[in-house]
Amino acid sequence: GPHMVIRAEKMEAVTHLAASISHEIRNPLTAARGFIQLIEEQPLAADKRRQYARIAIEELDRAEAIITDYLTFAKPAPETPEKLNVKLEIERVIDILRPLANMSCVDIQATLAPFSVIGEREKFRQCLLNVMKNAIEAMPNGGTLQVYVSIDNGRVLIRIADTGVGMTKEQLERLGEPYFTTKGVKGTGLGMMVVYRIIESMNGTIRIESEIHKGTTVSIYLPLASSPSSSTISDKEKQLFAAL
């Protein structure tokens, strides 16, 4: 039957994140450089040259995958939490992923509502991107990606469901560990780890249900950003009124 894992707010802090990333990116780049150097320096047989070039390309692709999982939206400047319109943010990410979806014959169906949450825009997009990209990649032979937004017990619920390959109970439990991946050489495992960290930072929870050959559903629960009621007046406003 379907397996389920719920991640609470508090995950183990991954303190050596930046160090491990630069290490992970440097390794494939060093390897790629080495093979390109071999091609450049030695007179090689055509098949050897092709083999080295292919390895170099694979290593560069690996470096790129790590950057995508992590840093698509990363900005060097510190971000500030702001009110985010869930509908607009999801639409933006769907636009970015549409070419990938089309390539995989994945139909995206979105039922969105403009609820607001508090968070850092780039990080929130990164989080949505990673979850939706996983969903699309779980459907190599096509399928449907459903994105649905609603309110559940006073929290904003973002549900992202695919009709893909699904995961075993063991895979589901290890999801979010750095370098644990269900994608073979293409995956880094960093994408889901980032998702957990971002949702945790937004005081949210994540619930994932999966069944082999049936698909996976990721439910993200976030606090609803309350609209400022007119009765609360800021200090600055008080000063203005006092000056009148």
Rank of each mutant, 00 (worst) to 15 (best):
P28Q: 08
V195A: 11
T72A: 07
R125V: 01
L71P: 04
K133T: 00
F73K: 10
I208E: 10
G191F: 07
I67W: 15
M132I: 01
G187A: 11
V131I: 14
A77N: 09
Y52G: 01
I151A: 04
S234H: 08
E211H: 05
E200W: 09
I233F: 06
G166T: 06
N134H: 12
I160S: 06
T163C: 05
T80D: 01
H23G: 12
K238R: 13
L172W: 08
R121Q: 14
G154D: 01
I206K: 13
P178V: 07
Q239C: 10
I39T: 04
A113P: 00
A113K: 04
I158T: 05
Y179I: 10
V117A: 07
R98T: 12
P2I: 14
K214P: 01
V106K: 02
G187V: 03
L38D: 05
F124I: 01
S226A: 15
T15L: 14
A46H: 04
I108M: 05
K186H: 14
N27G: 11
L100N: 05
V131E: 06
G204L: 07
G142C: 05
N141P: 03
Y52M: 02
L244Y: 08
M4P: 05
T232R: 11
S104G: 02
M202P: 01
P81K: 11
I90K: 06
G215T: 07
L175S: 04
R49A: 12
R92C: 09
L71R: 07
V165S: 12
N203L: 14
I96T: 04
A8H: 10
S150H: 02
Y52D: 01
A65N: 13
M193Q: 05
I136D: 02
K48R: 11
R125N: 10
P228C: 05
E237L: 13
R174C: 06
A46D: 11
K186C: 08
E64W: 09
L224Y: 13
G119E: 03
C105F: 13
A65S: 13
D107V: 02
S219T: 09
D69T: 02
S231N: 13
T182L: 10
I55H: 12
I66R: 04
L84W: 00
R49G: 05
F73L: 10
Q42T: 09
E24M: 14
M193S: 05
N27K: 15
D95A: 14
I206L: 15
A242F: 09
Y179R: 15
G1I: 08
R125H: 09
A77E: 15
L145F: 07
A46E: 10
Q37F: 10
E12H: 06
E59I: 04
I136G: 02
M4K: 10
A45C: 01
R98G: 01
Q37M: 12
G176R: 01
I66V: 15
C105E: 11
V195P: 11
P114N: 14
I39K: 06
P114Y: 09
I160T: 09
L29D: 00
I96H: 03
I160E: 10
R155V: 08
I96D: 08
I136K: 03
P223G: 06
T182D: 10
I21H: 00
P178N: 01
K183P: 04
L44P: 07
